[in-house]
């Protein structure tokens, strides 16, 4: 019989997992509303307006619509894989959050113990995230193949080629950060950036900004957002890999996509913008701002940035996308690794 401390540990882990999963499940609702609002204002429109004040309940209406819609499985589709694919897209997107730290630790008032704001601090944290996030592609490939439709298949093929190409650049950027921080653990990587804004990896001159640019571009391509959303290029492919999906299964793909956007924003903050560290010490004797607010604030800024990009940039052509990945980002990464290594000696 395990003792009480072990039981409480296990219980805490279960609670953390449930809380994070609930947050991730509900996060796309405000994010879709926000994205459409941002789109509207960038294009000098109002955006959603009719459901609730400023259209704030639009996401609820959308959710009801998606749930009530008929779920169509094409006749010639591979039924098993067609049903499995949305889950294959969703599970890795959630599983990544096992190692993502949201802060160091806080003390809970009633049970009088410190609770860490992450589920597990692995010594291979960043490798785990890259590995698991890479699995999300199977939802796209298998979904596109199982639909048995030419648009879906072409979308899936494009997507797999794109994700394989850009995964290399992402890994290089991660290696750069690991070289700077001397650790694969995300908690240590953030810890190495504490102190002031000058210790953040983005300001590790001259290589920091280059790594950040590579990471940002490659991760935009990984999560299939504009300007790299070739897999769902309406002009040539219908809706790409999810052309044949409808109702709940379609919304699972969308859910995975939004969670991936949040993940990338969080990774940008953790790897390059100091995580939950404040940019400078408060000079006045006012109560310090809790670390978690810095973290959420930085992540929100990145989410807004990704939405802003979506309605600002045009889509890349497919051959340009491949050229950018293989002939620009990867050579720059190789040179940058040499420079980083030289600086770390």
């Amino acid at each position: 019989m395990p003792d009480v401390t072990t039981l409480i540990e296990v219980l805490l882990i279960v609670i953390k997992v449930v809380v994070i999963a609930m947050i991730l499940f509900s996060l796309p609702m405000p994010l879709t509303w926000l994205e459409r609002k941002v789109a509207g204002h960038i294009q000098v429109r109002l955006g959603p307006w009719r459901v609730g004040p400023h259209g704030i309940l639009q996401a609820v209406a959308d959710a009801i619509k998606l749930m009530l819609k008929e779920d169509i499985t094409p006749d010639k589709a591979d039924k098993f894989l067609f049903r499995l694919a949305p889950l294959l897209a969703l599970v890795p997107a959630f599983a990544v959050f096992v190692t993502i730290p949201f802060g160091e630790s806080i003390s809970i008032p009633f049970i009088e113990r410190d609770v860490t704001l992450y589920i597990a601090d692995m010594n291979v944290g960043i490798l785990y995230i890259l590995a698991i996030a890479g699995l999300g592609i199977y939802g796209v490939i298998l979904g596109g193949w199982a639909s048995n439709s030419k648009y879906s298949l072409l979308g899936a093929l494009r997507s797999s080629a794109q994700m394989i190409s850009y995964e290399i650049a992402i890994s290089f950027a991660a290696i750069g950060v690991v070289m700077i921080a001397n650790s694969l653990s995300l908690v240590d990587i953030v810890g190495a950036q504490s102190g002031s804004i000058l210790n953040w990896n983005i300001l590790y001159l001259p290589v920091g900004p280059v790594w950040f640019a590579i990471f940002l571009i490659a991760s935009l391509a990984e999560i299939n957002r504009i300007p790299f959303d070739l897999p769902e290029d309406e002009g040539t492919l219908g809706a790409g890999f999810h052309t044949e999906y409808s109702g709940m299964r379609f919304s699972l793909f969308m859910l995975a996509e939004y969670v991936a956007m949040v993940t990338v924003s969080i990774l940008c903050v953790l790897l390059f913008f100091g995580g939950w560290n404040a940019p400078f010490d408060m000079p006045l004797p006012i109560p310090p701002i809790p670390a978690i607010f810095w973290f959420i604030g930085k992540v929100s800024a990145f989410i807004y940035f990704f939405m802003w990009l979506r309605f600002t940039l045009p889509r890349y052509r497919y051959d340009q996308l491949m050229t950018l990945g293989w002939k620009v980002l990867i050579p720059i990464s190789l040179v940058n690794i040499l420079v980083t290594g030289y600086m770390r000696i």
């Binding site: 692995m122 590995a131 890479g134 490939i141 298949l153 093929l157 797999s160 394989i164």
Partner: peptide
């Protein structure tokens, strides 16, 4: 854990994607 992460990263994440790509 390092080998586990690398196994997922290389074999599942890259090699199998190329397999599927070729098969398709």
């Amino acid at each position: 854990p390092f080998l586990a992460a690398v196994q997922v990263f290389i074999y599942v994440g890259a090699v199998m994607v190329l397999f599927l790509f070729a098969v398709m």
